[in-house]
Computed example of a mutant assay.
Amino acid sequence: MSVSLELRGLRKEFGGLVAVNDIDLAIPRGAVMGLLGPNGSGKTTVLNLISGALPLTSGEVLLNGQPVQHLAAHHRARLGIARTFQLVRLSRSLNARDNIALSLAFGRDALWGAAARERADAALATVGLPGRGNVDVGSLNYIDQKRLELARAIAAKPDILLLDEWLAGLNPTELRTGIELICALKEQGMTIILVEHIMEAIREICPRCVVMSAGMKIADGPTPDVLTDPQVVAAYLGDFEYA
């Protein structure tokens, strides 16, 4: 299986703080990987370095074998990298459809007008919001705002989808819906990196996990093995046991 995304010596320093410490990582095309670690371990920073939201200090980000670390975030988006954020980032002055259509102007297909609205409506249907294109963003509940942000990401038909705690804050029913939705995207062949703290979701969605602590990668392997690794338990899971 070919490598879709590769990180080589990925490093990010904020003054004297090393937030990401020389991470090496290769993710095959179509793989789904969980990126775990305690708060402040560097997970979101890694996603920011992949997407171009932050410049790296050193290292390489390769998409389909080509270095992209020198490219701005919108150029990486056009090459097939899309993401969601820990805190939902939507334009409340636009309706649901236009939130997506606006992003498509900067996506890999650069769509406008009727074509963008049609793509937006298809993405809304995919995430469980059919016929909701004219709805004001402010009238959507929390899970539907998260659905909308995910629709905006997948509308661009990305090769790489970065989900930053997308399941956080959901009640049990919403969580089940969210897990099923990510599993459906997984079946479509997207390469997905899932930053998450909810072990139920990680176990169900991610065959492979990488764990970070203090900016370093401390484990990488099959999810059941990683979650029972003593170093991972000490760094992240505390006294919890996952049989």
Rank of each mutant, 00 (worst) to 15 (best):
V210Q: 00
Q86P: 01
M190G: 02
A184M: 14
L90S: 05
A19R: 00
T45D: 06
K186T: 08
K146G: 12
R119S: 11
V20K: 12
V20G: 03
P224I: 09
N134K: 13
A219R: 02
G138T: 05
L181F: 12
R147V: 09
R76E: 05
R97I: 13
R147D: 06
E165V: 05
D121T: 07
M216F: 03
L79P: 04
L5C: 03
L87T: 13
T126G: 09
V20C: 06
L140I: 04
R117L: 09
A31I: 10
A82W: 08
M190Q: 14
L124M: 02
D98R: 11
W166C: 14
A31M: 13
L111G: 07
L36P: 02
L56V: 03
G16D: 05
N64L: 09
V68N: 03
L167D: 04
F14S: 14
L63I: 04
E149Y: 09
V137L: 10
A82H: 04
R97C: 12
A72M: 15
L170D: 00
V61S: 07
V46W: 06
T84N: 11
V18W: 07
V210K: 01
L35N: 03
P172F: 11
D98I: 12
M212T: 01
L35W: 05
L36K: 08
R83S: 05
R89N: 13
L161M: 10
G131P: 03
L111A: 10
D136P: 06
G65K: 15
M1D: 11
E200M: 14
V68K: 04
R132N: 04
A156M: 15
